[in-house]
Each structure stands twice: as C-alpha cells, then as structure tokens.
C-alpha cells in the first residue's frame, strides 16, 4: 500500500468563537488515498475542523496547510459538502441546475453553462444514480437523494481533497452504500477524503483513519486501534457502546 505525504495538515490549531474555544491544540495529518472519519458528539468541533481544512475559517492560533502551503482561504482543489440542514431545500432549483453550480468557481460569469458542462453534470448525476431525476426539483427529493445530488455537485469540481459534513446522517441504506462505493473510487484515485460522523460502526467499516475529537483530539489512527473503551468514553462522555462489535467491524 502506498503511503502518501499529508495533503492537509493542522499544527497546534486552536479556534475560538467569541470567548469560547471550539478546538484546542489540534494536530492532524490527512493523506491522499485515505478515508478519514472525524468522530465526536455534537459540539465537539468536527464541523469547525472541516471548515478550517476547507479554508473557510482561519485558525485563532496555529496553522492549517494544504500540500505543505498555508491555507489562507478556500482552495480550488478542496471541495466541501455541507450538511443537508445548512441548505434551503424549498429553493426553486432543479437537480441539474444545483449540480452545475459545482462549476461556479471555474466558469465565466459572462457565458451560460455550455453543452459539455451540462453533459459533465449529467455524468456526475449518473455516477450517483440520479440522472433520471435531473429535471426534478430539489424539494421533491428524499434525504438520501439530496445527499447524492450534493455529492454529484462535489464531483463536478475535480479536487484533490473532499470534505463532507455528516454525509451519512438521515440517508437510506442504498444511499449509504452508494456513498461508500463512490468514496472508495475517489480514494483509489488518490483523493483525500474526510467526513464527519456520529456513527462509529459506519466509520469502523469505511474509514482507514479515525480521529476522535471533543474540543481536542482524543485519539488518531486506524479505527481498530483508536476505538478503545477509554478513548470512546473520553470522546462521547461515557456513552454506552459495544466495543467488541465495533472492533469486529473494524477488523
């Protein structure tokens, strides 16, 4: 197995909101060709860390780098997939139009989207099994279908890193399986994938690398290594989990 150098990294990262610190002294390294799961309870700083890694939030202290260079803002090679709850799903826009907006950074504002752009969007939708609903309104979609459209929009921007905030939350099993398959393909092509989740079993099954986080990094490494009773108790505050079953999944 090829070990890639870190594509995204944080060194001694601290983020304050107002007077409250969301993250303290975080050091993480994310490699291309790996799926990294960020795990922690609500308010643990998972979304904040993803936003720092995508260049949306500047660290209060410490630094974030992409391919060794400091991240000073959003980067064309880093694609972010927000939580579904961040979006106004009643907005009058079709699945195809939403997918095309993935090209907003790279297309001239003076021209309409070209035929090849539309073909690329249809191909991205085909990849996620949504091409038959290209002309449907987004508010008519189920949660799983909405998540697939988000992924298709992300696929339009062929970046080197893909950051997803809670992609498995509230989606049906076929969508989960499809997400896992697509993330696997992207990983094989060398993309660095990071996703935030509450779901330990999902992470144990799909991630090469797990980061347990609760304001600070509790543990960092392969899921089979970091999913110990002690680490999970520190992360989730003593929530009841079946460690043996998780280990079995991770193995």
């Amino acid at each position: 197995m090829t070990v890639h150098p870190p594509m995204l990294a944080c060194t001694d990262l601290t983020v304050h909101y107002d007077n409250r610190s969301a993250l303290r002294s975080v050091n993480v390294a994310i490699r291309g060709g790996e799926v990294t799961a960020l795990l922690g309870p609500n308010g643990a700083g998972k979304s904040t860390l993803l936003k720092v890694l995508s260049g949306m939030i500047s660290p209060s202290h410490g630094s974030a780098t992409f391919e060794g260079a400091p991240l000073t803002g959003p980067h064309a090679s880093i694609t972010y997939v927000p939580q579904r709850s961040d979006v106004d799903w009643k907005f009058p826009i079709s699945v195809l139009e939403c997918t095309l907006l993935g090209l907003i950074r790279s297309r001239s504002r003076w021209a309409p989207f070209s035929r090849s752009d539309k073909e690329a969007a249809m191909a991205a939708l085909h990849n996620v099994g949504m091409d038959h609903l290209a002309h449907a309104q987004i508010d008519a979609l189920s949660g799983g279908q909405q998540q697939r459209v988000f992924l298709a929009r992300a696929l339009m921007n062929q970046g080197k890193a893909l950051l997803l905030d809670e992609p498995f939350t509230g989606v049906d099993v076929p969508t989960q399986e499809m997400l896992v398959a697509i993330l696997g393909r992207l990983k094989d092509s060398g993309t660095a994938i990071v996703y935030a989740t509450h779901d330990l079993a999902q992470a144990a099954q799909t991630a090469d690398h797990a980061i347990l986080i609760n304001g600070e990094v509790i543990a960092d490494g392969p899921p089979s290594f970091v999913f110990t009773e002690d680490n999970l108790a520190k992360t989730f505050g003593g929530a009841i989990v079946s460690i043996e079953s998780l280990r079995a999944v991770a193995r």
Partner: peptide, 22 residues
C-alpha cells in the same frame, strides 16, 4: 444578470458558496 449564479448559490446554500470562495 451578471451575478445570477453567485446570488442564486448564496440564497440557496451559503456554506457551499463560502467554501467555493465567494
């Protein structure tokens, strides 16, 4: 008309708009 895509994306999905550098 000129900023139709930006205004649309910001109205619909502000977080993605921000991550795309708007």
């Amino acid at each position: 008309l000129i900023f139709r895509r930006e205004i649309t994306l910001i109205s619909f999905d502000r977080v993605f708009a921000r991550s795309a550098g708007l």
